[in-house]
């Protein structure tokens, strides 16, 4: 056993243990760590946005280099603060509208490409897609399973009709495919979470207590 003498390791370790104590129940140690966590996160965020975004991307170019067009995003940004002045608080809807419009406009073509065009391309039954599985003759089988799964899953998410008759059968098959997918995702994600836990335990038992190397 070789306990660390580094005060920062001790602070990290005690905060980690405090957060873990929530597994037992809510307690003053957890509350202390939680508030420290939130406070530090906010302090870090304010300085990060100030030094990495506001100053280099807005204030310096606008006020020092005279790039006057930046006055437009500056004013739009300022409008977010109008909600603190009740008489003009309605102005906050202008930047909200601009931000939402921009993000939705940017994300829709990307989503159509990633979730519709590319997935359709990968699902169509062709000899090229059979080979993409790299599974020899089984590529045909996997492609057909994928094809049936996609069609049936689409039918499950069809909202305009009650799931009865043929639609009832296909949607039931579809939800089975969905659940199999979730099962795989569950196992995969749990493995990733366990590796995070192992990382913390290695820190506690290795860096802090020196029990393991």
């Amino acid at each position: 056993m070789n306990i660390s003498l580094d005060p920062w390791i001790w602070i990290s370790a005690l905060l980690t243990v405090s957060i873990f104590s929530f597994l037992y129940r809510d307690n003053p140690f957890y509350r202390f760590a939680e508030h420290i966590f939130v406070g530090v996160a906010n302090g870090w965020a304010v300085t990060f946005y100030w030094h990495n975004i506001l100053v280099p991307s807005l204030f310096d170019p606008l006020f020092r280099r005279g790039q006057l067009l930046l006055i437009i995003p500056f004013i739009i940004g300022i409008l977010y603060l109008t909600r603190f002045i009740p008489r003009v608080s309605w102005l906050v809807r202008i930047p909200i509208g601009i931000t939402m419009g921009y993000y939705v406009g940017a994300s829709i073509p990307a989503d159509v490409q990633a979730y519709i065009i590319k997935q359709t391309q990968g699902t169509i039954l062709t000899s090229q897609n059979f080979q993409a599985w790299n599974a020899g003759n089984m590529g045909v089988v996997w492609s057909i399973i994928l094809f049936v799964g996609v069609i049936c899953t689409l039918s499950y998410f069809y909202f305009s009709k009650e799931h009865k008759g043929v639609l009832g059968i296909t949607s039931r098959i579809g939800i089975i495919f969905v659940m199999i997918g979730f099962g795989a995702a569950f196992g995969y994600t749990v493995m990733a979470r366990i590796s995070l836990l192992i990382g913390r335990l290695q820190f506690l038992l290795g860096d802090w207590l020196g029990v393991i190397h």
Partner: peptide
């Protein structure tokens, strides 16, 4: 608004749930 850090947010919301 709480914080824009993912796990700090999770810690805070968990705290709200139990309190």
């Amino acid at each position: 608004f709480i914080t824009d850090l993912q796990f700090a947010y999770a810690a805070a919301v968990s705290g709200i749930m139990v309190r």
